[in-house]
């Protein structure tokens, strides 16, 4: 008998079905573009944060009247701006500030959005109705305008008030998404079972439902990060973002609002523009790969 079936091997241990995070990671590794994007993003982030520790901030923002609008050279790698300040140094600091605020706003708006979405979806009914009417109203507001108005209205404007204002108007999308997922999740049997066992609502929501939403949360947070960096640099570009003493990528691009700078001094605004573009593309690439991973039909790996 045994000789007839040489191919049959002793039964292996049953493979565990991969966890959500493993699937996400596997999808990124399979998608070469996403992997390169991820490496690029991590390298830029690390590089920028380390470089800004080494660079002397005072040296960068010092006005040098003998070096106004210098072209790129070996002394100033990317030339200088209207105050003779080194563009390359400003680019590093600007990228660091843009990334930091992007991360901060994404985390804050994510936390609020997840909390409200989870509560509203898990309890449903009246609570859900109240929260969602509120969200509906915020969603149709012309957000950009209202943020600009708030930025001008707030006294003692600082980076913190700026990130709070941004957060206040950016949590609605994620709240709505989490709510719709939580609505589906609460009908599932494990939630019913847990309720029967006498777990509190709080415990079910945060220790049982929330982990099941983790991959979708990671996906939206990644995509939101790209969007938030875009919004921040857009606001800084219009002059309603970072306070003036803190350069961001948008601040550098905003010099291009002067037609002469736009036409003749490309080294001031073009590098920052390209950097934002590449950063947002790479974050989006990672986000899209993660998004595919959460949908089993579209997975590559």
């Amino acid at each position: 008998m045994e000789t007839n079936n040489p191919n049959i091997e002793p039964p292996k241990e049953i493979e565990r079905s991969p966890s959500g995070l493993t699937i996400l990671w596997r999808e990124i590794v399979r998608d070469k573009l996403a992997l390169i994007s991820l490496i690029f993003f991590v390298a830029t982030t690390a590089g920028v944060f380390i470089a800004s520790l080494l660079l002397d901030l005072n040296e960068i923002v010092k006005v040098d009247l003998f070096a106004l609008y210098e072209r790129p050279s070996s002394e100033f790698w990317l030339g200088t701006d209207y105050g003779g300040r080194d563009i390359f140094g400003q680019l590093i600091i600007g990228t660091r500030n843009s990334l930091a605020i992007g991360l901060l706003v994404t985390l804050m708006s994510g936390t609020i959005g997840i909390l409200i979405g989870l509560i509203s979806g898990y309890f449903g009914g009246t609570i859900d109705n109240i929260f969602m009417r509120f969200v509906d109203f915020f969603m149709i507001l012309p957000t950009l305008m209202i943020v600009i108005v708030f930025v001008t209205a707030v006294p003692d404007y600082s980076i913190y008030s700026f990130s709070f204002i941004m957060t206040a108007f950016l949590w609605m999308g994620i709240a709505r998404l989490i709510r719709s997922k939580a609505l589906q999740e609460r009908e599932l049997e494990y939630v019913q079972a847990s309720k029967t066992l006498g777990s509190s609502d709080f415990k079910i929501m945060f220790t049982q439902v929330l982990p099941n939403l983790s991959s979708i949360i990671i996906v939206t947070m990644t995509l939101n990060l790209a969007a938030n960096i875009g919004i921040e640099s857009g606001l800084s570009f219009l002059g309603f973002g970072f306070p003036e003493d803190t350069p961001s990528l948008g601040t550098l691009i905003s010099y291009a609002r002067n037609p002469q700078t736009l036409e003749l001094r490309w080294w001031i605004w073009l590098p920052a523009s390209i950097l934002i573009l590449v950063l947002m593309l790479s974050i989006n690439n990672v986000g899209q790969a993660l998004k595919r991973a959460t949908d089993a039909r579209q997975r590559r790996g």
């Binding site: 875009g230 857009g234 291009a256 934002i276 947002m280 593309l281 974050i283």
Partner: peptide, 13 residues
């Protein structure tokens, strides 16, 4: 991925 203002600037340029 591309922000509107950067696209517009590049187009104008």
């Amino acid at each position: 991925a591309a922000p509107l203002f950067i696209t517009a600037l590049l187009m104008l340029f």
